[in-house]
Design a protein around this nucleic acid. Structure first.
Lengths: 343, 343
DNA sequence: TTGAAAGCGCTAACAG
DNA sequence: CTGTTAGCGCTTTCAA
């Protein structure tokens, strides 16, 4: 390529990075040779030579789910603008896969690492600690939790929200409407500890208020179908019957809502339903599903911002607690709509 | 790292790639040093030295949409098992972004390239042609179409289905139910040429049958809301009134279905609705939405298979035409459900 | 079974 | 403004 333009490699390299530095006629010849040969610079060689990796590695449970897709979008937008490339891998909510993918991503010598949540396998934890010790910013997203007592492990920057608070808010919302027999419907995903934490906080808050709370685990498979199935289970409970249920996600809750309609069961009079995630479908049903709106995009953009700042100033990234909102709609409130926000 | 184990770098390299070749006591020392130092080999250097890239680059319109997420999953699974890494970028249905992302991905010297659809910018086409000429397999997915007449451009392997056929099948399904005033509702995404092709084939088939067809473009923004809005537009058409509508995707169709219910408009008696994509929500509504089931996952797995075969045998990848299915449900058929399949 | 030498394609640093 | 030299961390090839 360089000889095609009648210059040396370094001149082409410079033209590609800082066109202004190259003389205009030289630039013209390079441009011509570039399009003629279809040359694309080898990134492996470039990154190796410059040492400075411009890659950010991110590990998310999945991308299919709109929840994490928006976070990826926010990350990608923020990083791309600053000239960083985003390398994403999905873990499928498995700590084992997370460790495996993390090892693969670290091979690209990323300038920073983003992982989801604060629970990791021992091996992954070791890799992350090594990375942090080597000066690579490590950020845990989608969680914001005080350090566990007696934990000797390295702690990482957290950007997200506190799931205990959400669980409590969900309980309070239903208790305030007068419910005394409540249920939490967990997803069938064993390693989604954040859903479990919300459930634990939910039941604790309910019981602290002197009401009763049960936990049901949804079957795996299609989430709508799982929600439909769970509705049947909930209706069999009692007496006294359960009058309100909180779900690990909106798809489960929507399934239950649709099944309730199919059975002619009045929502919220006979059974109030509360989702989590505020997916697009939630607002569309009738009654509309009450849910918890999450900072999906903000987690991505804030992480990018914090990361870039840390990279620029060569110090640790700053943790961020982001706000969520409980949006009350028809499925929990017979009339009107109200809103509760993160403390 | 090498000196930590008391050997040279090449021995560590060998241990990492072919453990059996290294003496067992040496292996043991290396293993120990490995976990002690948290060493992760630098992929940039490795790939540069070996020349052999084990990366497959893929460009998809987006990942948030469940349609393409499943394809990515299928690709990823198939490739990972064979030791390849998948590098994915999203184009947001923009040819300009596609070219930009393609250029970025090619910098990783991928062993193969996967792009979505057969329409690309001139620049992207040139890059792809160069890659193909250099022996890199290039596959176009989500389409399967005979070469355009008079096209001088390089042609690439296609793995997907024919959108004209789908458009025709959608028309025939509604015509067979006796509809004579039909509409096609296109998505607001200008560069989703596949949706436009289905629409053109749909209207052509309708008109060939002596019935009337109009095309409406949905507004951008939330797809459910767009579908709701479009229903209002459809109802204002005529007289004679439109009695059936086919949509560019299920979200639009679901929005219209929900809005019809809200207005007390009987589906399918007063207006039949037919979606595309068979999203999870389609089966859940009442009446359930008729839709076209797509080989989302199969496109990914077949592409991986074809790619690996091409890489192994050092020749071009084989094109594959994959089957789709029109699933008739309550939104187009008052009673029972039937099925029409790709020819 | 292990090592030494050379080089992958690019860029940092320094000259001119 | 452009070129020369050296070297990024690994793997290939050949030798011991």
């Amino acid at each position: 390529m360089a000889q095609a333009a009648g210059v040396t490699a370094i001149t082409v390299s410079r033209f590609l990075r800082e066109p202004a530095v190259v003389a205009s006629d030289t630039a013209e010849r390079i441009r011509a040779a570039l399009s003629r040969t279809g040359y694309v610079p080898n990134k492996q060689a470039g990154l190796l030579a410059s040492g400075a990796g411009n890659i950010v590695a991110a590990l998310l449970p999945n991308l299919a789910n709109s929840i994490f897709a928006e976070t990826a979008q926010g990350l990608s937008d923020g990083l791309q603008a600053a000239g960083y490339e985003l390398l994403i891998a999905a873990t499928g909510y498995s700590l084992e896969r997370e460790e495996h993918q993390l090892r693969a991503l670290l091979g690209w010598q990323p300038a920073a690492v983003v992982v989801t949540g604060r629970r990791h396998s021992p091996g992954a934890l070791q890799l992350l600690a090594h990375a942090k010790a080597a000066g690579t910013p490590v950020i845990e997203i989608w969680d914001h939790h005080p350090p566990e007592r007696g934990a000797g492990r390295t702690s990482f920057t957290q950007i997200g929200f506190n799931h205990d608070e959400v669980g409590r808010a969900m309980a309070e919302h239903l208790l305030r409407a007068g419910h005394r027999r409540l249920a939490y419907v967990d997803s069938g995903v064993a390693e989604d500890y954040r859903a479990h934490e919300r459930g634990m906080a939910f039941t604790a808050a309910v019981r602290a208020a002197g009401a009763s709370a049960t936990v049901t685990v949804a079957p795996s498979g299609d989430a709508f179908d799982a929600g439909r199935h769970v509705l049947g289970v909930l209706m069999q409970a009692g007496p006294p019957a359960i009058t309100a249920a909180a779900f690990a996600n909106d798809h489960l809750a929507c399934g239950a809502l649709l099944e309730a309609q199919a059975r002619g069961l009045a929502v919220p009079q006979r059974l109030a339903l509360l989702g989590f995630g505020d997916f697009a479908i939630a607002r569309q049903l009738d009654p509309a599903l009450s849910s918890v709106q999450l900072p999906r995009l903000a987690i991505g953009t804030e992480t990018a911002r914090s990361l870039l700042d840390a990279l620029r100033r060569r110090k640790g990234a700053a943790p961020v607690s982001l706000p969520w909102t409980l949006v009350a709609r028809g499925s929990t409130a017979p009339s009107g709509a109200s809103v509760a926000t993160a403390p």
